[in-house]
Amino acid sequence: MLFCHGEKKSFSFLVRALKTFEKVSGLVANSEKTAVYCGSMDSTKKEETLGSYDFIMGDFPFKYLGIPLNAKYMLSSDFDSVVDKMLARITCWSSRNLSYAARATLINFVLMSLHLYWAQCILLPKGVMHRITQLCRSFLWDGAVVLGGAPPISWDWVCKPKKYGGIGVRDCSRWNKAALGKYVWKIAKKEDTLWVKWLHSIYLKDQDWWSYSPKKSDGWFWRELCAVKDELRQGFEIGNWISKNYKISDCYDWLQGPQEKTIANWLGIAERNFRLNVSWKHWKRQGMDMIHKRVYLAAFSACGYYIWFARNHAFWEKAFSFGGFCPITCHCSPCVLLVLVLLLGFLFSTGGLLSLSTLQGTAAGCLLHYSVMLFVYLMGCSLFLGSAGVDC
């Protein structure tokens, strides 16, 4: 790509440089494959500048190395090719019976990778980011292009790392800003590249990069990059990223904010060491919705189960076999029947079937599922042991 001012004299110098290159190297610029793009020029000035040359007049936006370029602000419609690729992939996958884990893997490693190259070059419009997030959310929960109802978990929770209760899906908007932070780092380091030198000579002009404010007449990309710089400034100061190689992952983690293990906080358990016979009364008085109450009761029952299990293990290990998925396996058929009755009664009376189907594949759903199983075994085995005259 060659650039010049939008005037006849500057353009003639550019053509003269091409002819000089032709005489030296023997390579001729094909006028039929060479296009001229004019920004902020009226039709009269265009004809005056290009009238005597046989170059093709191109229109904005045009693609260069796969990225659309425009003299003005990029519209959401200019990025339809990325959205169309995602739609094609989801349409192909929607006919397959995929689990939540498989969908999350496809989102992270296939769908999100389709826009990574674009996100490292320009700041994508909010409308495009919203559309990408919408497609990923719909595919994760329904396996289709359109989401049939409200998602069971907010997208912010889905984008949290797995160790903090999320699914680990990448937040495309934050990742886009973290990727552009690479250019902020290059400008701050005054890297020895032609682009950075041009920016310092045209825009910055020996001004401090962190206190610089762009003019309203500056290009839209430069103004967007300065906005990203202002947003990431605190992260550069805290993380001291200037003194080391810039990593997108470090900036992305900082943009996500401090993470905490949230299952205990979500249940309202803030104490590390607590007395079970006192804390449960405090939890019971807390205002909780129905999902909170069910998960809390299941978790509380699981705690009771492990206390009971530790107390009676030494006395009852001969009556139970340990192994497989379940912690204990009762060999008495009346007890098994009682467990099944309790399980069905719990699910139908409390709406457990709805909760399990709604939260399936999530951290809360897994906790609810396994805790309910432990609760049922605890109740069934306790009743059986009580009827046998054993103190439990």
Rank of each mutant, 00 (worst) to 15 (best):
D59H: 10
N108Y: 01
D54C: 15
D42V: 02
I153G: 14
L65I: 09
W141P: 10
L27C: 11
A150L: 15
I167W: 14
F3H: 10
D218M: 12
G39C: 12
W155T: 09
G168F: 05
P125T: 03
N30L: 12
C38N: 00
S25L: 09
S201F: 14
W175K: 06
N240C: 15
K46C: 13
T91P: 11
W118E: 00
G380P: 11
K160V: 12
A35R: 05
L297I: 08
K244Y: 09
I153S: 15
G304M: 05
K318T: 11
Y117Q: 00
D59A: 10
S43W: 04
N273C: 11
R272V: 09
I269M: 05
I307W: 13
W175I: 04
W198N: 00
L69G: 01
R89H: 05
L98M: 12
L140G: 01
Q234E: 15
Q120C: 14
D391N: 11
G304S: 03
F315H: 08
S76K: 13
P61C: 07
R311V: 03
Y305I: 01
L116F: 04
C330M: 10
Y164V: 10
T44E: 13
K8W: 15
A144P: 08
Q286E: 14
G351F: 01
L50V: 13
K63A: 09
E260L: 12
C136M: 13
M1P: 13
G51R: 09
Y246C: 01
T262P: 04
A310N: 00
G219P: 13
C326V: 04
M41L: 14
S25Y: 08
W209R: 00
S43V: 02
D250N: 13
L354E: 06
G257P: 04
D289Q: 08
C381W: 10
E191C: 03
M129C: 05
W185E: 00
V184A: 15
F139C: 01
K46D: 05
N240Y: 15
S52Y: 01
G58M: 03
V196Q: 09
Y370K: 11
Y64K: 05
D78C: 12
L199N: 13
M1H: 12
S279G: 09
G365L: 09
F315G: 03
K126V: 07
T105G: 02
V336F: 06
N277I: 14
T20A: 11
V336P: 02
S52W: 01
L65R: 07
V339F: 06
V339N: 07
P125S: 06
S99G: 09
F13K: 13
K23D: 01
L378G: 05
C136K: 08
G323K: 01
C366I: 05
D142V: 07
K182P: 04
L367W: 13
K186H: 02
F300V: 12
L106V: 06
D253K: 14
P161L: 08
I122D: 00
